[in-house]
């Protein structure tokens, strides 16, 4: 009898992680015939594949971003629903990253491999929590795979923002947040902290905000940040994609204080470089403690690391008795988001 090896089930290829017995790729970075998509961020969910399997919310997000014709055919899989793909069985379970985000659980001949996609462990009011699945091989992201990245509790960061708003009532606060997931989570967290005033949003966020609201995430009173006199924005919070906060677009607001919600904001030099005066360390990715705690909790037979700062997490795993290897997949960005 031949040994079943993990690399026979999933192996890295230039297009992305490939499953030969099921003939599909997971989050391929180039167009392929069959794809499983973990979540809607552009570097994981690209247009132009033949057939796409994803959660209903992820399919919605892709259609919103790329148009209804973004793939040859689509198949929606609810969380926990086992879907056969040739010889293998694929189950999508919550990853806690953004709305619709999932881990891909791939089972074949008694072997279970879990592809985390991007994930986090802390509570997110805009999506269901990460669900740990016992597995032989855990294939983890490592965007924040360095011990310096330790995200503080969200509510503390939101409290710092609200304190600054109270301290500078004549100025506006411009919060840079990635358009999918982060922006809606910030808005939701502000609502939970009791900020009932209208929140002004950049045009690039409007469609995704509406999508989140359709999926039952109550974002409250949102208004376009494009109309109104400069003085109207005094004491107000404006949410915009990170690129807009420092651009000419921001000149319409009264003496704005630039905030940026990202895990990268943990490092002061990153904040300073970006001209950020109020860094908010809020991330949709697992921080170092969450990454290591997850490995510890699952104790997989092997840890594979897809992207991010692989070497540090691999070393930590080895020191803790979990064999680890870096796949060095290319094409996943870690600069814009956190």
């Amino acid at each position: 009898m031949l040994m079943i090896r993990p690399q026979d089930l999933l192996c890295p290829k230039p297009e992305g992680l490939y499953c030969a017995p099921g003939d599909f790729y997971i989050d391929p970075t180039r167009p392929v015939a069959r794809a499983v998509i973990t979540h809607g961020h552009a570097d994981h969910a690209r247009a132009g594949h033949g057939a796409v399997l994803a959660t209903p919310a992820t399919l919605d997000i892709m259609a919103e971003r790329y148009g209804a014709e973004f793939a040859g055919s689509t198949q929606a899989a609810a969380y926990g629903e086992a879907v056969p793909r040739d010889e293998v069985e694929v189950t999508l379970v919550p990853a806690g990253h953004v709305l619709g985000s999932a881990q891909a659980v791939v089972r074949w001949k008694g072997l279970t491999m879990v592809v985390s996609g991007d994930y986090k462990r802390r509570r997110d009011p805009t999506c269901p929590a990460f669900q740990p699945v016992p597995c032989d091989v855990f294939i983890s992201e490592a965007t924040f795979g360095l011990p310096v990245f330790r995200h503080p509790p969200d509510h503390e960061e939101i409290a710092r923002l609200l304190r600054s708003v109270a301290q500078f009532p004549e100025r506006s606060h411009l919060v840079g947040a990635y358009a999918l997931g982060k922006a809606q989570r910030i808005i939701r967290l502000l609502r939970e902290a009791g900020w009932d005033a209208p929140i002004y949003v950049h045009g690039a966020l409007e469609r995704l905000d509406a999508l989140y609201q359709r999926h039952g995430v109550d974002l409250g009173d949102l208004r376009p940040a494009t109309t109104g006199a400069k003085a109207d924005f005094a004491g107000q919070i404006i949410v915009a994609p990170p690129s807009a906060t420092q651009d000419r677009w921001s000149r319409r607001f009264p003496d704005p204080i630039t905030a940026f919600a990202s895990g990268w904001m943990r490092v002061r030099a990153r904040a300073r470089q970006g001209g950020v005066e109020l860094p908010l360390v809020i991330s949709d990715h697992a921080d170092w403690d969450e990454l290591t705690a997850t490995v510890d909790e699952l104790r997989p037979g092997e840890l594979w690391i897809t992207h991010g700062r692989e070497e540090a997490l691999a070393r930590w795993a080895e020191l803790h008795g979990v064999p680890a290897k870096a796949l060095k997949l290319v094409g996943y960005e870690d600069e814009d988001d956190g």
């Binding site: 310096v148 330790r150 700062r309 540090a312």
Partner: peptide, 22 residues
């Protein structure tokens, strides 16, 4: 682990800040 500390320090570039974080 000194190696993990060293990678962290290399990334952050400031000793006090690195230690504060790690």
């Amino acid at each position: 682990d000194p190696q993990l500390f060293w990678w962290s320090y290399e990334y952050v570039g400031d000793l006090a800040e690195t230690v504060a974080l790690v």
